[in-house]
Every structure is written in structure tokens, then in C-alpha cells.
Design a protein around this nucleic acid. Structure first.
Lengths: 69, 69
DNA sequence: ATGTAGACTATAGTCGACC
DNA sequence: CGGTCGACTATAGTCTACA
């Protein structure tokens, strides 16, 4: 059974790294806590769609980019 | 500014209705509370990605279907 | 069948500190 | 720079009841 939290976290990390952005910078852009970004990328947090939306905007990607598995 | 909760709720309602499924039945299939489904469709709740995933599975649609605006 | 309200428990999301 | 811990506050998600 696929874990959506893990899959989402991996997407965030991959897209963030492809843009050479640090977790710290992403946190600032998305107005979220840095430690929370860390947890998200490591598949530990079940984020809300508002948070998904904020991160998508911060990385300038459509939301669906994070759910294409 | 677009409200992601409202947009998501409208998608759930539209897809659910297109399949002639009641909120009650959707709640049962997704293993969520019926009143919660009602709130979601009315744009009142900031659902988690696990909940989005459950609803997507219950309606037999890929997650991205709910974020194509 | 659906919307809403209120009271409840679990967890999303913050923050400071340390490695 | 990123992972983790612990304590915290806000809200996700449940449930009963009534229109």
C-alpha cells in the first residue's frame, strides 16, 4: 500500500532541489516552519491542502505536480 | 485570491454527483464521517492529503482530478 | 439526503535548542 | 544546512442530535 505522505515528501524534496532552494528558504517563501518542511520531506507529516498549495506556490509549480506518481 | 478549500469541495461534489453517489455512501466508502463530507463540499474544511487520497480512491479517480482548476 | 451546531480527541503546524 | 526532540496552540476529523 503506497504511502501518500512519503510520496508527497519525495516530490517536494525533488522539486526543491531541482531549483537549488534550501529547506530554510522554502520555509520562508511558503511561510511555514523549517522543521516542518524537514518532516514533510521525510514523509512524517500528513499535510493539509492549504499547505500543499503554499508549497506549490513557493516553488512556482501547479499543485498537481506533487501528485503525479 | 482563490480558495483551495472551496475549489476542492466543489470538485468533490461534482465528481460525487456525476456518479450518483450520496454523501452518506461516499463517507462510508472513504471511511470518513458524513458530516465531514458535507463540510468539505461546502468549502469549510482544510483537508489533509490522506483524506484527499481516501476520497479519490472512494470515487475511483486519481488525486490530480481534484486539483485541475 | 443534506446542513449545521457543539463537544470531543487526535494531530497539524510552531518554535527553541542541539547535533 | 538538515534531522530530531519536546512542548506548545490551532485545527482536522468524529459523533450525536435536530431541522
Amino acid at each position: 500500500m503506497m504511502d501518500i505522505k512519503v510520496a508527497y515528501g519525495e516530490k517536494v524534496k525533488a522539486i526543491r532541489k531541482s531549483q537549488n532552494v534550501s529547506q530554510e528558504k522554502l520555509a520562508e517563501l511558503a511561510e511555514l516552519d523549517r522543521t516542518y518542511i524537514s518532516d514533510i520531506e521525510n514523509g512524517k507529516r500528513n499535510v493539509s491542502i492549504e499547505t500543499v498549495f503554499k508549497i506549490a506556490k513557493a516553488l512556482d509549480k501547479p499543485m498537481i505536480s506533487f501528485f503525479e506518481f
